[in-house]
Design a protein around this nucleic acid. Structure first.
Lengths: 167, 167
DNA sequence: ATCATTGCAAAAGATTTGCAAGGTC
DNA sequence: GACCTTGCAAATCTTTTGCAATGAT
């Protein structure tokens, strides 16, 4: 158990190594931009969206700058490579670590807009059962529980506003 | 039980009546466009997105035409009024009947892009339990199980392509 | 008559794409 | 050197918004 209460998955290679292997297998090249993005993305564990990531990277003209299209293209590769998982929240794509991190689901606080993670073996069992009952072959699932967290309930803080609040 | 295997919720008013009441309570007006959209949306039970709906409506210049902005605005009102539920799939908003229809979750076939519904009391119990464990006050939830349905497995049919396949 | 609503055009936000220039193997 | 990748600009898709004209109460 780690401080966030989720079990880590043991991994033998670093994300860099694993991405490198993926690129090889696809006949793709490992560039400065890709290395930089792997490093950046795996240096923090929070969920993020493309704009947040771009905000954290050096601005145009500075060393380490990566253009917006390259960020988007690379995020898609990360998902393909199994480094990141992607899901949708409030009309935009949100990414989180996949490689070296266990499958889990989310509690989304509508007050603070924070995503908390939880793991439930019972949920996995239930999904198996439901799938069996429906003759359905499961690839993955996504459960988000919407509501108010303890912190959200306490803080009278106005929630963060995003550029476009869709749902 | 009905043919789709889901329990109907008994309702005393028609969607029209209920929307009318909602509009009154908000000091809003009931227009031709709104009536037409309520009728159209409740004449079929399938999930739909805004573009699909617009495609089904009369084209510009024909009687019964409703402009794109009005469709979007009205769909948002339907959600507010509790007539429709809204969720996200493949980067766009998808709507389904809420009024007169029980809460349920979805099996999404990645082959045929069909959404099937299921209801599970066990899931509701489990969510309650998880929320309690995490000191979380639940408003709603959304579970989508991704995979291949029986039909998807059988049909070698190429899956429908949408303008933008995001996830 | 008042004030909400419509449709139009345009904007906005998120993401993708064509392409010439540059980088990697 | 072959060819993948980048950054730029522009396009695309979905959804929203400002505003003048129209419509509901």
């Amino acid at each position: 158990m780690t401080d966030d209460g989720l079990e880590r998955v043991p991994v033998s290679q670093s994300p860099q190594q694993r991405f490198d292997e993926y690129l090889q297998s696809k006949g793709m090249r490992n560039t400065e931009q890709r290395k930089l993005l792997v490093d950046h993305v795996f240096s923090r564990h929070e969920h993020f969206d493309a704009e947040t990531l771009i905000d954290q990277l050096p601005r145009k003209g500075n060393p380490g700058y990566v253009s917006r299209p390259t960020v988007y293209r690379t995020l898609n590769e990360f998902v393909d490579a199994g480094l990141l998982r992607k899901f949708e929240l409030d009309g935009r794509a949100v990414y989180e670590h996949d490689y070296g991190y266990p499958q889990h689901d989310h509690l989304y606080c509508e007050q603070s807009q924070e995503l908390a993670e939880f793991q439930s073996d019972e949920l996995l069992e239930l999904i198996k059962k439901i799938a069996a009952e429906n003759d359905f072959q499961v690839h993955s699932h996504r459960l988000i529980i919407y509501g108010i967290s303890k912190e959200g309930r306490q803080s009278r803080t106005k929630r963060k506003r995003r550029k476009q609040d869709l749902i």
